[in-house]
Amino acid sequence: MKYFLSLLLTLPLAAEDKVPPPGEQPFKTNCAACHMLASDVVGPSLVSLAKTYPKAKQGEFVAWAKAPGKKNTNMIQMPSMAHVPDADLAKIHDYLLSTADGVKEKSGKELYPKFKEPKRPLPYVVRASMPDSSPASVGVILENGLSVCWDTEACRFRYAYVGNKTNLFNIWKPASLPNKPFYVESSDVLIHSATSDDKKGSFFPITAKPRFRGYRLIDRNPEFHYSLGGFEIREQVGTGGSGGTIKRQFTISHLDRSIQLDLSSKGNAIVSSDKGTIKDGKLSLTAAEAKSFTLTLTKK
């Protein structure tokens, strides 16, 4: 059974074979990922583009598409469409004018209802890029109205601020915080170690790269885990007994010598420890004390 094509050409056209407007396919190919009809998404809507580029400005439209600049500060800059022939860009322009004709911009310019952060039970732990910390940070929002930035890259508490904002993760930029921090740890290296013979008063910074191992949630409070130069360190962050305080419970295992924490800081808070002694912003702990100790941070 052999059919030759010429015989088959007489088959009727299917309904879906109707010819689309000339600009539709180049629009779908080059523009549709970022430009919707009546809502701004990555780029402006067709309705808004039709306003910027009426028929008389087709030349400007084509020129812009080939060498775009940054027009909308809240949008990503468009890649150049120089690979699309001018004739197709003109067809795209015609297509967007005819498609947008008579259509109204959606109010609020949002295609989908903007996600509204629900009221989250506190404390709440959220991964985010945070200002003045690494892009791999953790926000800890406590129930007493204070929040903490903990950096998984440096494996340390970076700063504390007033506020209970929980929607910190943002693809486009680091979290915007409700307030400037009232306490910022400013030492280059937090943990300093004594020499192996534990010679009194002699400490050197542990500059080995820490390895972040994650966190446990204990009654919703995070206990951060990391390894540092052969030690395993846990730091649990939560509220202190009274308002305006933050408690940091440390446990350090495999420790065989004294350590010192450089608690140099900027801002307006007092730090105290239940073990060891703080002198000139440095907390000194014997190996036994360092196995488990608690720092209390009180906002002035």
Partner: peptide, 18 residues
Amino acid sequence: IADHYETVCNDFGLTGNY
């Protein structure tokens, strides 16, 4: 409910770019 968020691998870079 998960109570242990264990880091399996974070051995790659981030620049803050969206």
